[in-house]
């Protein structure tokens, strides 16, 4: 991952900043330029809830490049308290501890490192609440 690509998403990855349609209120994560509900192009920036629950999950046992040290790890679609769903790791959670409906809260974690000399990528994960 080149730093510019990482950098561009920092508001979302560090602060869970989403876009809310000023006309119909629909929330988009990441923010986008056009609302698919009402076609409005006017948005305001909001911060997503930092608590939620596991909507569905898996345990990744064959990890992609850069994730070996964390493997096996729990990956989930988490439904935040404001209704927005995101794919994120459930950190500090063993394969036997996760279930649909598990209450979780967001924590700031290291997501990946680009080799030994590349940029360190941070972002959101959840932990059991």
């Amino acid at each position: 991952m080149q730093p510019q690509r990482y950098w561009r998403e920092i508001p979302q990855r560090y602060r869970l900043e989403a876009g809310r349609c000023r006309r119909c209120g629909k929330v988009f994560m990441p923010p986008r330029g056009l609302c698919d509900s009402c076609r409005s192009t006017e948005f305001e920036t909001i911060r997503l809830a930092d608590r939620g629950k596991v909507h569905t999950y898996t345990v990744i046992r064959v990890p992609p490049a850069g994730f070996a040290a964390q493997s096996p790890y729990v990956l989930a679609v988490v439904e935040l308290d404001d209704g927005v769903r995101l794919t994120m790791q459930v950190a500090d959670c063993g394969p036997d501890e996760v279930r649909v409906g598990l209450p979780v809260r967001v924590e700031f974690r290291k997501i990946n490192e680009v080799g030994k000399s590349g940029v360190i990528c941070y972002g959101y994960k959840v932990v059991p609440a």
């Binding site: 990441p30 990744i60 064959v62 990956l75 997501i111 972002g123």
Partner: peptide, 14 residues
């Protein structure tokens, strides 16, 4: 979604 699925460790089997 590279930035919002794979970035966070998702794979296709996952």
């Amino acid at each position: 979604d590279q930035e919002y699925e794979c970035y966070n460790g998702a794979t296709f089997p996952g």
